[in-house]
Design a binder for these strands. Sequence first.
DNA 1: CTGGGGTCCT
DNA 2: AGGACCC
Length: 725
Amino acid sequence: MAWPGMEKYQNERIIIHLDYDCFYASVVENERPGLRSLPLGIQQKNILATCNYVARAQGVKKLQLVSEAKKTCPNLVIVNGEDLSRFRDASKKLWLYVREFIWEYKVERLGFDEVFLDVTQMIDFNIANLNLADFPASVLPTCTLASNLACTNADDDKLVEEAADQGIGFFRLSLTDPKRGFSFSWGKLPGHTYPLNDALDLRVLPESDHSSQSLEDDGLDCKVHNDFHQTKHTKHRLHRRLFLAAHFADFLRNSVKETYNYTVSAGISTTKLTAKLAGSVNKPDKQTLLIPAATQSFLDGHEIGKIPGVGFKTAQVLREELLGVVQGGAPEGSSVAEVAFYDKLTHPVTIHDIRRKLTLDRLSQVLDSKEQARKLYGWLHGVDTTPVAQTSLIPTQISIEDTFRSLKGTKQAEQVLIQLVTKLITRMHIDLLSPLPTPTTSTPTPTTSLQRWLACPRTFRLSLRPRDMTGPYSARISKSAPLPRYVFARDSCAEALAGRLVRDVGLPLLRKMGKVGEGELQLVNVAVVNMEESKAGEAVMAGVDIEKVFAGKKVTAEGSRNKNDEDMDWEKEVREIERVYKMLGEKGVEGDHKLAEEIDGISNEEDTIVDGQNLGIVGVMKPIDNQIEPGIGEDLWVKADDNGELSDMDGNGTDIVPAEAPTLRPIAHLRTKSRLDFSELEMEDEVGSPSARGVVCPKCGMGVLLFALEAHARFHEMERREQEK
DNA sequence: CTGGGGTCCT
DNA sequence: AGGACCC
């Protein structure tokens, strides 16, 4: 057969899929519990990313336009969710929590709100220990005698039935510690099943295997398959394992709820595909176990596009293969997307339809690769061998983006880039720097110096979406360039690094995009990609003592030279940059400036000398209509209006004004440190040389380079808004 | 008047 | 560099 041994593998694993209910809304509700009883929507630009169940009860839908949602639910409470930080943090927190329960960390994250768990080993271990769990002694999990007695004759059905009569079982969470675990009732299957069956008794449910049935329908050779399911013991064993998994899922859901106050929906099955689909059957705060015998009929009822992995394109291709080009009900001149949308409504195509009418050969012709066809063919029959991938603690990419109604010109693009890149660098610190050694005991640790980079992104990428676009909606254009090493200077402030990065890489890439870069932009995205993990990073993540790893590295360095050396290479380079940085400037503008000189090999000594005196920090402010010339030591302000918009009277960037304007609220207070020289300003616009011109922010004492000023002011504004809540 | 992220494959 | 997919 096409998949030797596949059917065996099919029922070998036990997979749990967890889905945090309306996640963004739950995060906000946990921050502000008062919102829990109100209809709540999370807004991103014009759309509701999600909403809570109170809102759904009033007709609000996910991904609905805000305007429409307000119509159907006038009292909808709307919270902006464009900044994903809080959601990312919460997601990571929950993931790390769940991860600790699962052996070998077989936990795969999908988006922010879903995880797949491969609990096969945990279940099989507990199945093997049934006798331990089910004898009366097991009610007392401390019984080590029982542990010694543990004989693995779980094959004996009688034993299991006896065990059931005992009432309570104990599910062990640790291979080594018999006390770690939870008690469960043998008499009750937690949560729901599909199909719904009150009388269902999984412990002894009679078997009729779904996939052997369906594969026979298709006239395939399933000898191996049938053989595998021949014995009674095997059939019953699968049900027992799923029964235990349902208890485990229940335990996990309750744990997450008690610890972090998030409700979770769960699906329990033998593959990722079926576990995920099963979880959608009963939704919020519920779990569903898919009875194996029902798998085929369960799948058959689903629309083809519901299969994870069959997206918009594939679904449409399959639909057309079955029905021809239907254009059912779509208005004249509709886009491809609209046609597909109407097709879906007027001509729903189910898994059953596809499975019955399209052979594997036919699928191979229709889809782009043979491999895709094979996978899909398996999915149609509930066969999915995709393993649960252990999600790494180090992301493969970090990206930040923003969309606009209209963004024109390099000037505006530069401002946007600086904002985005500042956030990007901040994210690099959060996601790629080793966790600080817990500040509880002995050492009153300094700040970043004890942290290490766990990975080094090699590439910076700029992506744009032009506004006009005739083609498919998603069309983006991107260009990449090597990421300069200086962004890894950990003590340098994000704004300063962002300014340099935008100047050195961002703007050049933008220019490289030609007309698109200059035209109207709908979306700007910046990303770091191409992560190169450091050995130290892996060690830190695995909880290994980092110093030992480095010590050991010297000794073992002879063997595998290649990758190790590369790692050492950049880590060493970063340390060197930081050493220079510390020596020269310690903190702030001066340090950044001197660092820039050192790295770029550019000397700007002249720039820092004014009137024959080296002032170190030189302030140059942008004049408004060339009328205002602030002097040395004068107080300056960045201001905002009532909406929090930073003052920008001439449209050329945030104003920095010398006196308080009555209608505007001061955001950042700046003080010039030297004579202001406007001729320097012109020079900067032209050449964009590493700039020593900057000011000291009295709010945080940080030196801020001119090009980073707006971003820095915005940072304080964001802080202030956070504190208002 | 279609978010702001992510993954992997080609 | 882009495209498909996921949330």
